[in-house]
């Protein structure tokens, strides 16, 4: 297990969380559970090749009444279909749960804004995103 690095300055609820067991792994991406358990850390690439599997994995992790925190500062690349995986999961989040994106690379934040996904219920972008 290893400590998650906090991203840049700002609210960092995931700094100091522990990284746990692998929840999903393919040739280009590893998703690990975290401790506390309502988080996931991502390392690698999310794109058309694995976006469907990522969406399914996220939806399976959504818990009732608590947010799901995603640590994304080690995402090397995500395309639109990768971001869509987060959007799909947010769409299936119940009223009392939501998905929070931490360490979101600046390019991905811009992509989300440009394609109309920056302002969705159930999907929150933490201000601790990368510079």
């Amino acid at each position: 297990m290893s400590l998650l690095r906090g991203a840049a300055s700002g609210e960092q609820p995931m700094a100091g969380w522990l990284e746990g067991e692998s929840m999903y792994a393919d040739r280009q991406l590893v998703i690990r559970h975290t401790i506390p358990t309502n988080g996931l850390s991502f390392a690698g690439t999310i794109d058309v090749m694995n976006a469907d599997q990522v969406a399914a994995a996220l939806i399976a992790q959504l818990g009732e009444g608590q947010p799901l925190h995603l640590e994304l500062s080690r995402v090397e690349f995500s395309d639109v279909s990768g971001i869509r995986a987060f959007v799909l999961a947010a769409e299936s989040a119940s009223e009392r749960s939501r998905i929070v994106l931490h360490g979101l690379p600046a390019l991905l934040q811009r992509v989300m804004t440009v394609v109309g996904w920056a302002d969705l219920p159930g999907l929150e972008i933490c201000s601790c995103g990368a510079e």
């Binding site: 799909l88 440009v114 394609v115 109309g116 969705l120």
Partner: peptide
């Protein structure tokens, strides 16, 4: 065509035009 909110619909070429 400006993408609709929600998850459906292609956005790749819209993104290309913005990028």
């Amino acid at each position: 065509e400006r993408p609709l909110t929600g998850s459906a619909g292609g956005r790749g070429l819209w993104l290309a035009n913005q990028m």
